[in-house]
Every structure is written in structure tokens, then in C-alpha cells.
Computed example of a mutant assay.
Amino acid sequence: MSLHKVSSINRSFAGTNPTSRGGESSLELEAIAAVHELSFAVQSISVSEMLPRTPDLIFVNVTTLEGRPFSLKI
């Protein structure tokens, strides 16, 4: 099973599937913009596809230049 499929199932159980709520929340759009703005300063950064997201909660996965992984709750 692909990670994309797992994340879709996870969101459907949590009631946070972006397709079921009619698009991205303003928080999600801000998080995506931040990912693009900060990508030059870290090894990797992305909005989590595995953790649930709501209009008021989102997780961003970051790996520092030193290789230390973090999950940020926003």
C-alpha cells in the first residue's frame, strides 16, 4: 500500500481529508508557503501526509542540515 493511500485513509478516519472539506484551509496554504520559503535552509521540509490535519492544526516535517528530523505542530 502506498503512503498516499495510507494518508488518505488516515484523513478519512480523522475527518480531515482535504478533498472532503472542499480545499485547503488558510493554515494549510500558509504552511505550504512556509515550506517553499524555508526549503533553502534545511535538508528537507514538507507538510506531513501521514499525520491528520484540520483547519486549525497541521504538521510539518523538517530535517535539519545536520540530519536531525523534527515534526512541527502548527
Rank of each mutant, 00 (worst) to 15 (best):
P18R: 14
V62M: 01
E30F: 04
I9L: 14
S25R: 01
D56A: 13
F13R: 10
L72F: 06
S8V: 08
L57Q: 10
L38N: 09
M50G: 06
L27Q: 02
T19P: 00
I45T: 04
E49I: 05
E49R: 04
S12N: 13
A34T: 13
L65Q: 13
I58L: 06
A34F: 08
S46T: 07
H4V: 13
V47Q: 02
V60H: 01
L51T: 12
S26R: 08
H4T: 14
N61K: 03
N61I: 05
S12G: 05
V42Q: 02
A34M: 11
H36L: 14
P55A: 12
F40N: 14
F59C: 08
H4A: 11
A31G: 04
R68M: 13
N17Q: 11
R21T: 14
E30W: 05
P55N: 08
L29Q: 15
F40E: 14
S20I: 06
S71I: 12
N61F: 00
P18M: 12
L27C: 05
R53D: 03
I45Y: 03
S8A: 12
N17R: 07
D56P: 00
Q43H: 08
V6T: 06
E30H: 03
K5E: 13
I58H: 00
T19W: 10
A33K: 15
V6Y: 12
T19D: 14
D56N: 09
R21E: 11
T16H: 07
P52M: 11
K5L: 12
R21L: 09
T16N: 15
I32F: 03
S20V: 07
E66I: 09
E37W: 01
F70D: 01
S7M: 07
T64P: 02
P52I: 07
S71P: 00
S26V: 14
S44I: 12
E37R: 11
L57H: 07
P69D: 12
V62A: 00
G15K: 04
L3Q: 10
F59A: 10
L51C: 08
S20A: 14
P69C: 09
L27N: 06
K73E: 09
S2A: 10
A33L: 12
V42K: 00
M50H: 04
K73A: 09
N61V: 06
S2K: 05
S39F: 06
S39E: 15
G15T: 07
V35G: 01
R68V: 15
A41K: 03
A14N: 13
T63V: 15
R53P: 00
E37I: 02
Q43T: 13
A41V: 05
I32G: 01
P52V: 11
G15Y: 04
T54M: 11
G23F: 03
T64C: 08
N61W: 00
E24Y: 11
I58Y: 00
K73D: 05
E28Q: 14
E49Y: 00
L29I: 13
G15W: 05
I45E: 02
T63M: 02
S39K: 15
S2H: 05
L3C: 04
M1K: 06
L65D: 09
N61G: 02
V62Y: 00
S12Y: 09
T64K: 06
F40V: 10
S26I: 13
V47F: 02
I58Q: 00
F59W: 07
I74M: 03
S39Y: 03
G22T: 06
P55E: 14
H36C: 09
